[in-house]
Amino acid sequence: MEEKVISREKVVTFIDTLIGKYYVFAPVKKKDFISFDEVKSGNEVYLGYRNSKDSPKRFLFPQSEVMLRYEKGRLIEEGPFDYGKRVIFGIRPCDIKGFSLLNKVFDNHDFRDPYFITKRDSIILIGMGCREPQTTCFCTSLGIDPGSSDGADLFITDIGNKYVFQILTSKGEGIISEYDGFNDAEKADLDMKEKVSEDAKERIRTKVEISGLKEKLDGMFEDPFWSDLHEKCIGCAICTYLCPTCHCFDIEDETVNDKGVRRRNWDSCMFPLFTLHTSGHNPRESGKERMRQRIMHKFNYFVSYWGDTACVGCGRCIINCPVNMDLRKVINNINHG
């Protein structure tokens, strides 16, 4: 692996060189939150971010996406439609892990989803290690290191006055070569990088026990635990919309005057309509069944189906839940119940 360094100021010029060749998305400061947005200048990028409010999963799996177009009842054009070459600058290790979990669902031996795959293949991921994890972060419990470069094309560590760039793939190599302001990293830089990563890991104090959780849940479907758990939940589904691993969607036709598009839109297991049959029968009738589905899917069903847990410990569902449902407490209660 090759490592380069660049000064803090030059990162901005590096981003400027990418703009124009790629659509560049990076953390941008909004009124009271951070989000990945398209930037037209390196100065717009907010490098002091901890993490974005919403997950960057929408770059592979948009909240609403046109699948095909039809007119007068006939198909006229099918997707996937071209989104162009995109660079995601500053994506966190937990969110990259989220991509690899979505990948299991959308690209497997049974059915390959071209809408997801074409976007995945045309995107370049510039990951960035965490310096200051949030109090709600618990990625290390899920086996994710806040300094891990897994899945990135390039990976950046902020070592104070400089940034260390690790080149991990040929795509990463390609964009490094777009800019000539890089120097080779020296031993002191790499030592500093190690230290920053170690410190970040140390700062994550919350631990939840994931090993044995699946087995515990195996026998809990009928447990009275679920009857109370959902009581304060208002079913807003924010937790699933912001989750980097939630992949549920709906397919809907939108027509105006004989012309229309078939769209795929995010959907959520927290909504009663999600499983409602036309006959009126609903297998998940109340909040109890829906909350159980959400937890079971992440920590039990997904594990048996895809061999991994559908959670990356990013804490978005904890920060943004209007009634303070804390997934870490839920896990602890399951473990100790």
Partner: peptide, 24 residues
């Protein structure tokens, strides 16, 4: 069995009973 379905190919996440997708 019947469950409400959309994708039919185990991706949209709505037709599961426990760890099985009814569509797949």
């Amino acid at each position: 069995l019947e469950m409400r379905m959309k994708c039919g190919i185990g991706k949209c996440g709505r037709c599961n009973i426990g760890n099985r997708y009814v569509c797949k």
